[in-house]
Amino acid sequence: MTTEVHGSTTPEVTVVVPHYGAPGPTLDVCAQLLAQRDVDLEVVVADDASPEPIVVPDGVRLVRRDVNGGFAANVNSGLAEARGALCLVLNSDMQLRDRAVADLVEAARPHQPCLAAPAITTVDGRWEESRHRWPSPLRTAVSLSRPVPHLTRIPRVRRWLLESRAVATEGPTPCDWVSGAAFMVPTPVIRSIGGLDEHFFMYGEDVDLQRRLRAAGVPSLLFRSVEMAHVGGGSTDPLRADGWSLQARWVYAERHGYARRLRAMLWGTALVNVLWNVAARAGGRKVSVRRELRHDVLRARGRTY
């Protein structure tokens, strides 16, 4: 299962690429990683029991799980095999410049130990929101209310709802948490806190990880000078994604002590949404008030629909 990468048994960076599903994107990012310049790295693909087992190229190590466990469990499987001093967790749908990993290592070196993240862009170069505040029960509840699409037209409200903050163009920008699509942390540090929490199946595990790292004195820093592009466009069923997202919100709330407040605020959101939907229906829009109320009630009870 183990293959030497770039002729080194102790690489500077281990890149863990969590994989599930179609092999194309993962193989593309592996090719980009093997072509990285000026950095000694190994690539570990963690296959989360995909229906179609992936065959990785020479120079890439493969860890295949017997049971699908979700993103956090899959990353931890790859992390267990990491030999590098630093661990870079990288989504399979990323595009990298030929020095992206080396640039991130160099930018973060004076600030270690830290969780270092690049600026995430779209493939056409547009900046994605990458720097966020810690989640709160109020912000979560408001984000699930029906008036949100109208409120987000106001820039100040949009920034508050997205929990985003300005990013420095030079040097590191301290963050509460950054996108989990690409982040690097010293391998002994992430292992010392137990890796990602496997109670999160999908979503939220990156926020929780960074909160635990912060409690251990390890900050999250975003480096605007290093860019990686996020292709996105996955084929995950929206209902399954909504269910995972809801589960993640509740796991996070329980882990960080505000589950009761979140439940109360979600009941308030249900009331706001009923009034909004009744008004919308009275105005001639096609809205199923009963169905939407059922969704909100299930969500307030911590259940999916």
Rank of each mutant, 00 (worst) to 15 (best):
T2C: 03
S8V: 14
T9I: 11
T14F: 05
V15C: 06
T26M: 07
D28V: 10
V29Y: 03
C30Q: 09
V39M: 01
L41N: 07
V45D: 02
D47T: 07
D48Y: 11
I54G: 02
V55T: 15
V55Q: 15
P57D: 05
L62M: 07
D66N: 12
G70D: 04
N76V: 02
S77E: 08
R83C: 08
V89H: 04
R99D: 14
A100N: 07
A102L: 09
V105C: 06
V105Q: 02
E106N: 12
E106F: 04
T122A: 10
T122S: 15
R126I: 00
E129R: 15
H132R: 12
W134M: 06
W134D: 10
P135Y: 09
S136E: 13
R139C: 05
P147K: 11
H150F: 08
I154G: 00
I154Y: 13
P155M: 02
R158K: 13
R159W: 09
S164Q: 09
R165Y: 06
P172Y: 03
T173A: 11
P174H: 08
V178G: 03
A181H: 11
T187W: 04
P188S: 15
V189Q: 06
I193E: 09
G195R: 02
F201I: 13
G204T: 12
R212N: 12
V218E: 03
L222T: 02
R224T: 04
S225M: 07
H230Y: 15
V231P: 06
G234Q: 06
S235F: 06
T236S: 12
R240E: 08
G243I: 00
L246T: 08
Q247G: 14
A248K: 04
Y252K: 02
G257A: 07
G257P: 02
L262C: 01
R263Y: 05
G268N: 00
A270Y: 04
L275S: 13
W276L: 00
A279R: 15
S288F: 01
L293A: 15
V297Q: 02
R299Q: 10
G302D: 04
R303Y: 04
T304H: 14
Y305P: 05
